[in-house]
Design a protein around this nucleic acid. Structure first.
Length: 342
DNA sequence: AATACGGGGTA
DNA sequence: TACCCAGTATT
């Protein structure tokens, strides 16, 4: 058995050293770049995070620069990536690093910082500091479930993560935990994929009980929560190169401090009102919601907005500099035909 | 233990 | 549409 684990680790690391993708936090590694990448990659695919990472590094090259930046600027560079508490927490972590005499060097110490949980704590400690702590993310769960031909049906993803944590640590190469962790995730992302897994190219095939059993495509078995369907109705009021936007309260649960296209309710209008005209429908999704968003053109004649409340007239020239949710920015850009590139 | 987070890619 | 993505914090 000892030999088998040694063989496994060797096969995994050898594959990774020859097949890893070239990524900016690998070609030029540092503690800071590891931390930033891990925050961005929480529930976000590499392809999506990549351009954000490059822009982030240009503007905030190190912990101190990030720590000293205004939160508005920090959020602006996260705009469109979603789950904005990640940016707020990353900002706090940078400030902690700037103000602290010591650098965390254990999983537990990292987990004491905001936005860092089991996964991110182990990822940072192992990749940037060589701490032998296994990560268990969605990729690792899938690889291990197939490797062990695990038929248990987990009630949620967290249960599966817990289930495989011990095994992940047993398999972890103690001499190269960072590479071993990244190798497991890389296998999951590029070879042991959910659909059309490339078993013929897999360096772990000879260890894989799921492959031997022919059950790879059915694993892992995890029950997922459904997304709730939500319909939103929004009003677009444009007047003289200005647009009426709603600024979300800083104490709100989501999109704190962001602007958004105001809801009809917010404008004190109804869908049936003769003042509005349906112009566009868009579908998108976030976390546990599947959103169908309807856009209406609003006649500004009937509006009485004082501009002192949450509703603000924003000049087209200002749109680039305000915080606006990604989908709404794209919507405005397309509908108004104005450039809102940042 | 369940839910929120208002994002996005892929089959 | 359904499922997944280098998850975490809150309730």
């Amino acid at each position: 058995m000892i030999n088998k684990i040694t063989d496994f680790r060797l096969a995994l690391l050898d594959w990774y050293r020859h097949n890893q993708r070239s990524l900016p936090w690998r070609t030029e590694p540092s503690l800071y770049r590891t931390v930033v990448s891990e925050f961005m990659l929480q529930q976000t695919q590499i392809k999506t995070a990549l351009p954000y990472f490059e822009r982030w590094m240009e503007r905030f090259p190190d912990f101190t620069t990030l720590a000293d930046a205004d939160s508005e600027v920090v959020l602006k560079h996260w705009e469109g990536l979603g789950y904005y508490n990640r940016a707020r927490n990353l900002h706090k972590v940078a400030q902690w690093m700037r103000d602290s005499e010591v650098v965390p060097d254990t999983v537990e110490a990292w987990k004491a910082l905001p936005g860092i949980g089991d996964y991110t704590g182990a990822a940072i400690a192992s990749i940037a500091q060589g701490v032998p702590a296994a990560v268990v993310d969605g990729n690792v769960v899938r690889v291990l479930a197939r490797l062990t031909n695990e038929q248990t049906s987990f009630s949620n993803n967290g249960k599966a993560v817990d289930f495989f944590k011990d095994l992940a640590n047993e398999l972890l190469d103690q001499a190269s935990p960072g590479d071993a962790n990244q190798a497991m995730m890389e296998i999951g992302a590029t070879v042991c994929t959910k659909g059309n897994p490339k078993c013929t190219l897999c360096p772990l095939q000879k260890f894989c009980r799921g492959f031997a059993d022919g059950s790879v495509s059915e694993l892992p078995k995890i029950q997922r929560a459904k997304r709730e369907k939500v319909r939103l109705y929004r009003g677009l009021a444009v007047d003289q190169k200005k647009i009426l936007l709603h600024k979300i309260d800083s104490e709100a649960k989501r999109l704190k401090g962001h602007f958004e296209i105001p809801s009809l309710e917010c404008l004190k209008l109804t869908e049936d009102s003769k003042q509005v005209e349906a112009v566009s429908v868009r579908r998108r999704a976030i976390s546990n919601q599947s959103i169908e968003e309807h856009l209406f053109r609003v006649d500004t004649e009937g509006l009485s907005i004082d501009g002192k409340g949450a509703l603000n007239w924003i000049d087209f020239s200002e749109i680039n500099s305000i915080l606006l949710s990604g989908p709404h920015r794209r919507w405005l850009m397309e509908y108004l035909g104005i450039s809102t590139n940042t």
